[in-house]
Structures are given as structure tokens and as C-alpha cells.
Design a binder for these strands. Structure first.
Lengths: 233, 233
DNA sequence: ACCTGAACACCGTTCAAGT
DNA sequence: ACCTGAACACCGTTCAAGT
């Protein structure tokens, strides 16, 4: 809790507010900044995963000393938080289209959310630990509003949202963790076959070989939405 | 890939097979063993979380040198795998009760699974990364069998299982991550109120204050099972 | 067969300075 | 206001020995 800017909230609209001393940088590197640190952290995370992010490595990539980072950032945890929020940015509520098809709307929102996280595979497993950034709240608000307008009762609303949240998080984390290496799963499935008697059902259905991630996600989401759908008795 | 026992499969039934040299330990500490290491690792993880597990700390707790662990265990990853599998043990398929209520059966299985993971809060977020232990496979097999017997078509079976998996994982990881600190969530909810206009719907529904985890889990599971239920046209 | 200490190549972060 | 190097208290793991 010093005079460092780390804890301070950023400008509301950093893009439009003019810089106080605009003609300040004489030459060379634009020097360190919070934005640059976060952007580079995302790059590094994308390239090397959660374990690959290192304050030292981050500083190297920025061409600065390690300790210089700590002027702009509280600590490593802070870097994670900022990187996560940066990645979950979203365009805000889209045009207020009064679609009648709430199911398509919800499915689209959640597929977009998932796609965003899969573009940065480290983000999904990080998210539940720090769920409260403004971007996530915005997404939850939009989801909530859509469901409410669709006729989900107030009594069911929170359960509905958390159900969708749970489903999306579980699906995305699993997909990102099982990762691109199909070999592992093929090997696992073969192990099933070798074990023969013990797992006949999942062996027969080839559960571990299912690689239509997008289709499976959508199918399960449909199951859930079926159950969620407000009964029009 | 040396002569170390690390990679070797354990005895099929370690509890019933007699020890080769039963009267071998002359006195004192039972010395190191794979079982003791894993059990202590689980203790340490329960007490200190994922970041709290340290090879050095583990050795300390076992009263041995750090490097002694490496005789019984490949590396730290291995310790995680073993600890996770140890925690997900389950009693195998229960008595073959031919219950007609497949929904209650499935719900019970998944609630048990979730409860098991919540008893060791570090386990849930670890599981998707290493999903293939025999105990997990056993649970998936049982789930698969139950759904199949209930009338879920082969075409829907994998999607159904992955949906339930995703939901349970997401719910458990979220619950374990948000953790016992209600204060955080209360603070977050208050922040919502302060922000006022931006998140009216989730503020009104008090989404972030919902702390009936078990009830919400069950409710969402019911939504999903509603959608999953085989249509009897 | 089982255990050990020293050493290596790393970490995140504190602190006291520099400009 | 912003950046820095040295230092501290840690990590996981290799290696060459010990018994």
C-alpha cells in the first residue's frame, strides 16, 4: 500500500483521455507500462503455459530488469489476474436485438465465452479462482438478463446461471487440459481394451476417443437448456 | 526407466497378498514406502494446498532426506498423480441393486464423487489434467452403464457422460476455488451494488451471495438430467 | 536395495540505491 | 517517478556416493 500506481484503478477510457505529457519519449523503447507487461504476459502464457510464466522470463522478454516489473505490478498473482481479465474482454452487450430465440442467444454467448478461453488455454483453469473481474461480471449480467427475459423464474435464475457456468467451465477446462495430444487418449483407450472385462461399456462407446469437442459441447449444452427451459404449462 | 520400482504396477490385491519377508523390520520407523509417501502427500495437500506441497516439505514430514523420496517416486508430478488417485478411490459398483430410479442412482453417484473431491479441495482442479486413473475409469464405467440401462441411446451416451462430467467438474472446481471465504464474495457483491447501474440483474438476484452450494449443485444436476432423460414418446 | 549430502540451475520478492 | 543489482530464502532434480 505505497504510492505505487499498482492498486489504483485505471482511467475509465484510457484510449480517449489525452496523455498529460504527450511528447515525452525521446527515443528507443517505449519503456515499461502496465499494458505492455500484461500483453507480454499473455504472449508468454500462450506460448509456455501457466508454469512457463516467470517474472524473470517476463522481464527478459520486455528487455528490462526483473524488479522493474514490480513498480507497475504488485506481484505475480497480480500479473495472472490482469492477464486473465485482458483475455476475457468482450464487446459488451451486442446490439439490443430483441430476438425471440433465447436459446440461440444463450448458446451463442456461451460458445463465444468458451472460444475466448480456448484461444488462451491457460485461462480456463485460472478463471474459477478469480471469477470477479468486470468482464466476467458483464458476461454474467448479460446471461442473467437473457434468461430472465426468456421466462426463467427468479427462484430458478441463480441455479440456472451457476449450472451454465459450471458446465462451461468444466467443459472448457477439460478440453484445454486434455489438450491437443490425441495420442494420450488413444493410448488410454487402448489400455481400456487391454483391460478388457473391467470397463466394457465405455470401451464399447469409445468414450475416450470422442474428439468432436465442439459438437459434444453443443449437445450437452442443449441437454442443459432443455432442462432449463421455462415450462409453458 | 531404471530398475526403480516407481514405474512398476502394484500388486493386484496388496491387502491379501502376503509379504515376502514378513518379519523384516527390526525396530523403529517403518522406513520409507510408496504408501507412506502418498498418504503424507495427501495430508500435506489437505493442509497446505497445491502450492504447499514441496518435495522438501514432504521429506521433512516423513523424517527423511529429500532425495530418498526419489527412490520410490519418479518426480513431483508422480506424487500428484498418486495422491489424486488415492483420493478418488471408491468402493466399486455397489450391490447390484436393480433400482428402477436411475435418476436417483446417477445423482447419488455424482454427489458422492463431488463429496469425495471436496474433502480434498486440491483434487478437483487437478483431476482434468490426469483423468485416466483406474478409479476414475471405474466411476465413468458405472455411470455409463447406469445411463445405458436407463434407456439413453448409444448415439447420446458419450455426450451425456461428458455433459455430466463437465458439470460435476465445473461445479466442484468452482466450489473448491471460491473456497470457504464468504467474505470475498460478500465484498464482491457489495462492489456490484456500488457499481450500481452496470449489473442490475445479478445484483438483484444476489448471484454472488448464493451459498447453498449443495442445493444449487443438485438443482443444476436436475436441470441436466431433465434434458438427458430418454424421451418415452 | 535403499538412502544421503552436495551441488546446479532455477524461483519470487525485499531492500537499499540509483537517476 | 521510474528503474536497478545484490541478496535472501526458497524450489526440483542430477550425480556420485554411501550402507
Amino acid at each position: 500500500m505505497s504510492a505505487k500506481p499498482s492498486g489504483a484503478r485505471k482511467n475509465r477510457s484510457p484510449r480517449t483521455s489525452a496523455q498529460p505529457q504527450p511528447a515525452q519519449e525521446p527515443r528507443g523503447e517505449p519503456s515499461l507500462s502496465r499494458e505492455r507487461i500484461v500483453a507480454t504476459a499473455v504472449e508468454l502464457l500462450d506460448a509456455a503455459g501457466v508454469d512457463g510464466l516467470t517474472m524473470r522470463g517476463l522481464a527478459d522478454r520486455l528487455g528490462s530488469g526483473v524488479m522493474s516489473l514490480y513498480w507497475h505490478v504488485d506481484n505475480k498473482e497480480d500479473v495472472f489476474d490482469l492477464a486473465l481479465d485482458a483475455v476475457l474482454d468482450y464487446g459488451g452487450p451486442p446490439e439490443i436485438v430483441e430476438s425471440r430465440d433465447w436459446r440461440a442467444e444463450v448458446a451463442h454467448m456461451l460458445e463465444d465465452w468458451r472460444a475466448n478461453m480456448l484461444r488462451h488455454p491457460w485461462s480456463a483453469s485460472l478463471l474459477p479462482r478469480r471469477a470477479l473481474g468486470p468482464n466476467i461480471l458483464g458476461r454474467l449480467e448479460l446471461l442473467s438478463r437473457t434468461l430472465s427475459k426468456a421466462g426463467v423464474t427468479d427462484a430458478d435464475l441463480n441455479a440456472a446461471i451457476w449450472s451454465l457456468w459450471n458446465y462451461v467451465m468444466g467443459a472448457t477446462i477439460t478440453r484445454a487440459s486434455f489438450g491437443p495430444s490425441d495420442d494420450d487418449r488413444a493410448a488410454a483407450q487402448q489400455r481400456l481394451t487391454r483391460l478388457g472385462e473391467r470397463y466394457p461399456t465405455i470401451e464399447r462407446s469409445r468414450l475416450l476417443l470422442d474428439d468432436d469437442w465442439d459438437g459434444t459441447f453443443r449437445k450437452g449444452l442443449d441437454f442443459l437448456l432443455d432442462g432449463l427451459a421455462p415450462q409453458r404449462s
